[in-house]
Design a protein around this nucleic acid. Structure first.
Lengths: 219, 219
DNA sequence: CATTAAATGCACGCAGCGTCCACTAAATGG
DNA sequence: CCATTTAGTGGACGCTGCGTGCATTTAATG
């Protein structure tokens, strides 16, 4: 998934944890690696996946095309890694102590990351590209979707332990119901992807999730 | 959206409703039109959007490339119209007399159309392609998504009139919650898109929609 | 200094899009 | 029957961008 990391420890320093001896030859340029990913994200934000060209990335990054092909076999893999690396920072477990608040916060954060600016469009275009190639689709699922789902599952499980969430809740289905509408709006752009939407999802879903039988809070 | 229809009434017959006189020149071949759309669907089912080539369609349909370009400006527009025309038959309002049953039936039907065989993958790949071109995205939304949404809205409104659905329900949000999970699974393939899933969606959502405050039916 | 591997620069083959053009085919009205 | 109009054919073309190949230079190792 990640381009194979062959970066060696800084000159002179011997990494204590590293079992293998220093590799021979010229070390991989970490700066090239970063510049390529940056240029890729930038180009996707401007031109979406279709407008992403290896030649363009090479030019922007000030790097030769061969260097890119050395580390990423195809354009789709490059786009994928750029997308995943850029997305990591948006996946955070709020862990507020309340399952309902956790879910709401997480969805609000997700909507915020994807809903404004060009990044959402770029992500959508990568999802799109993944539809044409099952291997890319799998990588995207594992690197992007499953990470979000596991955070969601953790929030639900904490809720079950605390007695806020009914114990027999169908976790995978619940996650589909939570994330599905967000991807739907991301991809179809029929309405804004904002905090109000995130709140709406949780408010509608919570009565089907929560343990107590108190009156529904749905608007 | 549709390739402009210039087919004229059959020879000799004067269409009563037609206001304009018979067009001059050679009439458009309806058989070519159909063969092109069929070949497009077939090729997308086999090779997804990326594997769809105008040259390939021309060959399969036994038609010249120019004929295709005459009626569809780009590959994406061709894919779009093929997708929309093939999909019409799956969009049916069950109108059972019960809003809950209507919703369930409609979602089951949708899952059935998209969940097995190659067609679902083909549709997903068109959604994907739409992400790279905002005009294609808009057409897809209007021709495919909005048709389904308006059927859904009608089912909910009938439910409101009959008192089964709470009057203040947020219809667009509810539709997002219903359809979102389906598109999510269609695109991400994390789990099967089957009737059980459709039922799960309705069962979970129904308590947030229905007018009465009877105990929830969620599993 | 020899070795190893990374990065460069340039050329190439190839597929497929979209266009152009001259030609043929099928309808029209006079 | 003929001029006109529009549809469809077939082949050639230019272009972009992918992915490869290869000789060369650069930065690290012992």
């Amino acid at each position: 998934m990640q381009a194979p990391s062959r970066v060696r420890p800084a000159r002179g320093r011997t990494a204590a944890a590293s079992k293998e001896a220093a590799p021979r030859g010229r070390p991989r340029s970490e700066s090239c690696h970063a510049k390529i990913l940056d240029a890729t994200v930038q180009m996707m934000e401007e031109n979406l996946y279709d407008g992403l060209t290896i030649e363009g990335v090479a030019e922007r990054a000030g790097v030769s095309k061969q260097t890119i092909y050395k580390w990423w076999p195809t354009k789709s893999r490059l786009a994928m890694e750029a997308c995943l690396s850029r997305s990591q920072r948006d996946i955070v477990d709020p862990d507020t102590g309340s399952a309902e608040d956790d879910l709401r916060e997480f969805l609000i954060r997700t909507c915020r990351a994807l809903g404004n600016g060009r990044w959402g469009f770029a992500v959508a275009s990568v999802i799109g590209a993944a539809q044409a190639n099952s291997e890319v689709a799998r990588e995207f699922r594992e690197g992007f979707i499953e990470k979000r789902r596991s955070v969601g599952a953790r929030m639900l499980e904490r809720g079950i332990e605390r007695g806020e969430v009914r114990a027999n809740v169908d976790v995978p289905l619940t996650l589909d119901l939570m994330y599905g509408p967000i991807w739907y709006r991301l991809l179809l752009r029929n309405a804004p992807l904002d905090a109000a939407f995130a709140r709406g999802i949780v408010n509608k879903l919570w009565p089907a999730i929560r343990a107590t039988e108190a009156p529904s809070r749905t608007s």
